[in-house]
Write a protein that binds this DNA or RNA. Structure first.
Lengths: 332, 332
DNA sequence: TTGTAAGCGTTATCAT
DNA sequence: ATGATAACGCTTACAA
């Protein structure tokens, strides 16, 4: 790999001149500029990013820390974030914590030691610990998709209460009165928010969401199967189900079909996230979209803003939307 | 962020001594060792990886270049590769080329400029160009999942012919005689290999795979829908289908169901890859697994071997396996 | 065993 | 407009 020194020698200038033509911030004679460019071409020279990063204290990279790689919703966000980051000429490093606080800490440490320009996190496992590390290093941080107790950090989140409202309105609007809900872990605030929006809105339609009809899952595939097993073995009656994510909705669908319960003829089923799989199953799934693209774009923008002129933290709230497909229909 | 200098000052030693206790390669007095460690703890010092990488010409990172992030099969590989790379104390940078040779080139360049220790690629869009760049930089490379024309680069691939054999044996064993196949792009060698294994094996069972029964898809979701539309509108008869990946199998399944064709009662359907979605649809999909974990492990190992002592390129071939689920059954 | 100093490839400050 | 030179934070001969 050629270095600036090689370019300088070939162009018969000093390395500082080479640096100047590359960074084009300081005026340089047109003639020498051309000579230098010639040498760069000829040697196929590309500046070393470690040297640059070391010097200017910017690794030209953004870190993204997630708890799990195989989760479709995360993949969605990652792919958008990557797009926007690359657009800015930076590179994205994705760190997978496997829900392990120690790995999480090592990962964030590793990023900081590479002079990251910003870190985006989703679902930190140990808020206080992680944020303390980041805080100290003065790296811009944005939390995506999860409201943190800590107030001193920027975040972009979904209006999860609203999602519950939308689900309830849709099902109530179709005339369903016996309704069930498969939730995510209720120690997570966003799950409680969704549930509250759902319950409150049903109540305002004079529909009661009975406690027994709420099954607390964990957002994983198996929860949908377990939920249906629970409902059926306890003779719980319902004509509509809202699962708080598509993964659980899809497995609930499978369990229903296997129990000869027709969707949507016998029960209406809706999910949330609008993963690709929602369109792939039969019947295709009515669901609630999260504006993943918008969330990602916003997160990246906040990072670069904070980098340019450190300002107050920002909290952005985005809106969910209803997508009607084949898995819900009018109550007979 | 504290630097070695700070540690050295606090421990009252020179920075080279600090370096020695950290890298523990050169003997250092037990007393000073403890003093230095004390200082490190106290300052919470962590070596800067850019400085280290610049000096020792190793960015402590592995690059992984893929054409598309949202593809479940790639995600599978990425997540395993990440696991093994992190295990070695390195970090993984995933670059998404969007099937664009220019982005691909920029990405690989970017990696090299960060002193990557190795690059894993899958599906390069412009073989000659990419490999030329990599070759020149002397970075260890492994191609995963795709046989390259170029012989001078290591690779780990699947025995794709064997996959076709397995599919044919399974379907023929169930008594199917009218068979169809939805392939990936046939300009890709692995697709031709799979098809040849399939066809040859059927033939040895005295079953003819008619040209009209072969639908060339592109491995994407829509291909399955299009294939079924093609078969039905051309009155092509079949009691079994092999789709060369699960994504197309899943959409074929959806199309069949929508056309009131029962799987597996009316037609048996099998896929390939064993994605999670194969278990999620109803009926769950009989498929052929690729040993993604094994492939990933091997790829990472080759990288680190080559890094330690550059040797001859390695070509590793791994075997596919049959997974029988609910979408195939005996021909009536 | 420990310290001094050169060097990795940049950028930035200061002269010229 | 250009060139020396120090500095970024680390490793590694070479001396002591």
């Amino acid at each position: 790999m050629p270095s600036m020194k090689d370019v300088a020698r070939l162009a018969k200038v000093s390395i500082s001149t080479v640096s100047r033509v590359i960074n084009q911030n300081i005026p340089v004679d047109e003639n020498t500029r051309l000579r230098v460019h010639g040498a760069i071409e000829k040697l196929n020279y590309k500046p070393n990013l470690l040297a640059k990063g070391l010097r200017v204290k910017s690794g030209q990279l953004i870190g993204f820390v997630i708890p799990e790689l195989k989760h479709p919703a995360f993949i969605n966000i990652i792919s958008y974030v990557e797009e926007f980051v690359v657009e800015k000429g930076f590179i994205l490093i994705v760190g997978n914590t496997h829900y392990d606080p120690d790995i999480e800490e090592r990962l964030i440490d590793n990023l900081i030691r590479r002079n990251v320009d910003g870190i985006i996190v989703t679902r930190v496992s140990d808020e206080s610990r992680v944020l303390k590390i980041i805080e100290k290093s003065r790296v811009p941080v944005v939390v995506i998709d999860r409201e943190l107790a800590l107030q001193e950090v920027s975040g972009v989140i979904l209006d999860n209460y609203k999602a519950g409202v939308i689900a309830a309105q849709h099902l109530a609007g179709l005339g369903h009165e016996k309704v069930a809900c498969i939730t995510g872990p209720l120690n997570i605030k966003l799950c409680r928010d969704r549930l509250n929006g759902f319950r409150d809105t049903l109540k305002s339609c004079r529909i009661e969401l009975r406690e027994n009809n709420i099954y607390e899952g964990d957002f994983k595939y198996e929860s949908g199967l377990e939920a249906i097993r629970y409902y059926l073995s306890n003779n719980i009656m319902f004509s509509a189900i809202w699962a708080q994510n598509d993964l659980m909705a899809v497995s609930a669908l499978k369990a229903l079909i296997e129990n000869k319960i027709k969707v949507p003829q016998d029960v209406s089923l809706m999910g949330m996230d609008d993963l690709e799989i929602a369109r792939m199953v039969t019947p295709s799934l009515t669901t609630i979209t999260q504006p993943f693209r918008e969330m990602s774009r916003t997160a990246v923008e906040i990072i670069f803003e904070q980098r340019a002129h450190p300002g107050p933290v920002q909290k952005i709230v985005l809106e969910p939307n209803l997508v009607i497909r084949d898995s819900t229909r009018y109550m007979k």
